[in-house]
Design a protein around this nucleic acid. Structure first.
Length: 311
DNA sequence: TTAGGAGACGAACGGTAGGT
DNA sequence: ACCTACCGTTCGTCTCCTAA
């Protein structure tokens, strides 16, 4: 029926079956036959036929107006479907921790927006466990975060290392620890703000550093340790500003924290070093878009002065 | 694999206007 | 009145697709 309508529009437009047939790449008899079939299907006479050619009847005029509207609607629908397809084909679904958002993911998203202005963008910022859940349920196609041993040991997940990053310990201005050069034992006496996965890393580190202490001291310390648990960076900042709590966080966030009057402690030794990389499904490695995304991230890291060289 | 239907084509045909 | 050109219709045949 739709094909007949397209042919009808052409005939009505040219008021000439032969010319319309040429335009449609059909033979004139075929088109003539099809117009009769259309009249039969609709039960209305659409053309007045005479030796000079054809003219539209009032029913033909009415159908012509409606058919043009149908054609416009159809073309708009095709257009929208195409745009929708494109939006989903190029859709960016990425996850990261707050630190990596500020360090380079934000720049990547900006580039993506410029390249694909009509594409959907979905960014999840959170801790590793949340992001891993999103990755496993295909809500995001990739996420950037610390390497956590064991986290990528799911059968279908790969960790692709990108660079190494040192951590510092941030506190409010005027914090008592700012007067000294701190050891890990010094900072362990203060409450720590735990941003999701940071909790596990920190406890692991504290336990490791205290292996030399006797078991009584160790138990005593761990029991007394106060932890402010949150999954929001802004809440963590608020907690730091209004308490003596400490926050271990990547060195690349120093400028950002400075804007909130938070400063790093002077440490006797490097507090911690982590490998930062991209987690993605193994099967996504066959996907051109995912591979391109990984390459673009590597390029951004290479050109980012705040990152001390790629991994 | 095959039969039936749909769609397309070329050839032939019919009707009419305009020129001679 | 006849011829020619133009336009649409009808008919027979072929090809391709689909369902059994």
């Amino acid at each position: 029926m739709f094909k007949l309508m397209i042919q009808f529009i052409q005939v009505a437009k040219t008021q000439n079956v032969t010319q319309a047939a040429n335009n449609l790449c059909l033979s004139q008899p075929t088109l003539s036959h099809n117009m009769q079939k259309l009249e039969e299907k609709l039960g209305s006479k659409l053309f007045d036929r005479n030796s000079k050619g054809i003219t539209l009847t009032s029913s033909g005029e009415l159908l012509y107006e409606q058919a043009k509207m149908m054609q416009n609607l159809y073309e708009n629908t095709l257009n929208k479907l195409e745009k929708n397809k494109l939006r989903h084909q190029t859709e960016l679904k990425i996850g990261c921790g707050d630190a990596w958002w500020h360090l380079f993911i934000r720049d990547y998203v900006q580039e993506f927006k410029d390249t694909y202005p009509h594409s959907n963008i979905s960014i999840d910022v959170g801790n590793h466990l949340q992001l891993m859940n999103l990755l496993l349920s295909d809500e995001i196609s990739i996420f950037v975060g610390h390497e956590i041993l064991g986290l990528a040991q799911y059968e279908d997940i790969l960790f692709h290392p990108l660079f190494q990053c040192s951590e510092e310990v941030y506190v409010r201005k005027g914090h008592p620890l700012l007067e000294i050069t701190c050891s890990n034992e010094d900072i362990a006496r203060f409450p720590s703000v735990d941003l999701g996965a940071a909790k596990k890393r920190f406890l692991h580190l504290v336990q490791k550093q205290n292996e030399a202490l006797n078991s009584f001291q160790k138990r005593h310390y761990l029991q007394e340790k106060v932890i402010y648990n949150t999954n929001s960076l802004l809440t963590a900042i608020d907690l730091l500003q209004n308490s003596d709590a400490i926050l271990p966080y990547p060195i690349t966030m120093r400028d950002y924290f400075d804007g909130f009057d938070l400063v790093p402690l002077q440490m006797k030794e490097c507090f911690s070093k982590a490998t930062i990389g991209a987690y993605l499904h193994k099967d996504k490695l066959q996907n051109k878009q995912s591979v391109a995304l990984l390459e673009q991230l590597k390029e951004l890291i290479k050109n980012n002065p705040k990152i001390n060289g790629p991994f």
